[in-house]
């Protein structure tokens, strides 16, 4: 092993049908976000990503993958697994949005209320989370992120290349418009 490895900045796990995807299937630009529901920077990027998808509805689709940093965010893992439990019922993005819109309410009690608010069965979801039913899925996303060079959250890949710019709407628009034209 005499040649040093390059630290990569490319997505290694391709997007598949197992992913949580929103936006048109034939979009020319795919954004993959590695995110943590308790991360304030992800929370700050969330409305901008939302607006980006609205303004570029025909060209951009969005993928979310879990990257909980549980040692600094005690509620992140549970939130991620709860989103997966919602996803198993076809409601991933509603739960995702609720979590980013209620980042001050991620403790188990408020989280259950949120689940209920979305019309999902809180006891059932809690049981699945307690039983670790969705833990492997979250872990798989995390490990894939680590191997792709994710070093914190949020990390975005725009058409498989790591986004090195900011998360303001203007930065995001610039990045996706550049990707759409290449």
């Amino acid at each position: 092993m005499s040649t040093p490895f390059q630290v990569t900045a490319r997505l290694r796990d391709p997007v598949t049908t197992d992913d949580h995807i929103r936006g048109p299937a034939d979009a020319s630009v795919t954004i993959v976000e590695y995110g943590d529901f308790q991360c304030q920077f992800c929370g700050a990027a969330y409305p901008n990503l939302h607006e980006l998808l609205r303004q570029r509805a025909d060209t951009v689709r969005m993928v979310f993958r879990h990257f909980p940093i549980a040692n600094i965010h005690p509620y992140a893992e549970r939130a991620a697994e709860t989103a997966e439990a919602a996803g198993a019922r076809g409601r991933f993005w509603e739960m995702h949005d609720w979590l980013y819109e209620h980042q001050d309410q991620l403790d188990p009690v408020h989280l259950s209320l949120g689940v209920e608010q979305l019309g999902l069965p809180p006891d059932e979801l809690n049981q699945e989370v307690e039983g670790g039913v969705h833990a492997d899925r979250v872990r798989r996303d995390f490990v894939g992120g680590i191997r792709s060079g994710v070093n914190g959250t949020p990390t975005l890949f725009v058409n498989d290349v790591r986004h090195e710019g900011g998360y303001d709407l203007a930065d995001l628009l610039t990045a996706v418009d550049a990707a759409a034209n290449t």
Binding site: M1, P4, F5, Q6, V7, T8, I146, R147, S148, G149, V150, N151, G152
Partner: peptide, 23 residues
Amino acid sequence: AWSYLSPPEVNPGADGIFDALDQ
């Protein structure tokens, strides 16, 4: 087996480490 110097302000992540461990 492997070494890497990162710019001080850049978090190098762990992908290089795991590539080296794989090797």
